[in-house]
């Protein structure tokens, strides 16, 4: 899977490093001083790297848990995000990571215990519910069999009374969760799109059917499952495509017990959009009619409103609809 693995010298003997390396016996391991030497260097081509990315094992020294962007929460007050990984094994054309990072290599931070300590420290500062979102700079579960991420974090967070953990994913790697006792304060949130969008824009991701099947397994095992329909892409036959998606959701999942559904139209920070458009000039998605203001590129306000109004109404028209939240710049 990874031909070359860069490892920071200081964590070369970390038990998690050794465990991860044992999964890649054929990879060539290269020692570096700091992951930034490879990940943050100038003049990298994300598109070329994405074809054959390397893995980088590193230690995250600071800024491990960050306040979540305002539109990221579920109408909750205390929202944080964290990333035990940078980048993702999938290749979604709309993903902001292509614009945010110079490199397409995958970084895994192996010092989970420091992340968990920071989560605990934040949680004790309030008695109110405090949310920790994973899957902002990576897919939470895509490499779970290798990273052992879910077990480490779920076991730790489930011991904190007021903490909630959201694991956002497009993957079907739920085996580790199924081996564990379900926790009410750990929500597995599946990002879903219509099959046509998955086929065209979410390269190397599991199919819609596979994601729904993984979500159903978790539901049956008693885990809270949420759905994230974000970004919603305004395509030809938009209503037909998304209507069919909603039908598949209600048909395959236990719709009324879903924890929540969030909806958000395609949007990107302007500078990320420009970078990604230059990386993939032939991509139809970046050729739609967009508005560009307040540093964001998005559909025209009227279009965005129509998209979200229609999706929300369509979802809520279904029997026993779970809470639907909008993720919007407004």
């Amino acid at each position: 899977m990874f031909s070359f693995i860069y490892v920071e010298k200081s964590i070369k003997k970390h038990p998690r490093t050794l465990k991860i390396l044992s999964r890649f016996p054929k990879s060539t391991v290269i020692t570096c001083e700091h992951y930034g030497e490879i990940f943050n260097r100038h003049q990298q081509d994300f598109r070329i790297q994405k074809k054959d990315p390397c893995l980088i094992l590193a230690e995250k020294h600071n800024k491990r848990i960050m306040p979540a962007p305002p539109e990221y929460g579920l109408n909750t007050t205390h929202n944080y995000y964290f990333s035990h990984m940078l980048n993702c094994i999938y290749d979604c054309r709309y993903c902001f990571l292509q614009g945010m990072f110079r490199s397409a290599h995958n970084v895994i931070f192996v010092n989970y215990e420091d992340f968990i300590e920071d989560i605990r420290a934040l949680a004790v500062k309030t008695r109110e519910p405090i949310w920790f979102y994973s899957g902002y700079d990576c897919d939470s579960l895509a490499l779970d069999p290798i990273t052992g991420f879910s077990r480490s974090f779920i076991e730790a967070v489930s011991l904190i009374d007021n903490a909630f953990l959201e694991l956002r994913t497009k993957s079907t790697q739920v085996r580790k969760l199924l081996e564990m006792k379900p926790r009410d304060n750990v929500i597995c949130a599946f990002s879903l799109s219509p099959s046509a969008v998955i086929k065209s824009l979410e390269h190397q991701t599991p199919s819609l059917a596979a994601r729904l099947s993984a979500a159903k397994k978790l539901q049956l095992a008693g885990w809270p499952v949420a759905l994230r329909l974000d970004p919603i892409v305004f395509v030809e036959n938009f209503r037909a495509e998304y209507k069919f998606l909603f039908e598949q959701i209600t048909e395959k999942l236990d719709f009324e017990t879903l924890h929540s559904i969030t909806i958000g139209a395609f949007r990107l920070p302007k500078r990320f959009f420009k970078t990604i458009k230059n990386l993939y000039p032939e991509e139809p998605l970046f050729s739609s009619q967009f508005n560009s203001d307040n540093g964001q590129v998005s559909y025209k306000k009227s279009t965005e409103k129509k998209i979200l109004d229609w999706c929300e109404a369509s979802l809520k028209s279904r029997k026993n609809c779970p809470p639907v939240y909008r993720q919007s710049l407004e």
Partner: peptide, 9 residues
């Protein structure tokens, strides 16, 4: 011409 075009998938 562009105003009439939407991404086709």
């Amino acid at each position: 011409r562009l105003q009439k075009l939407l991404p086709k998938f």
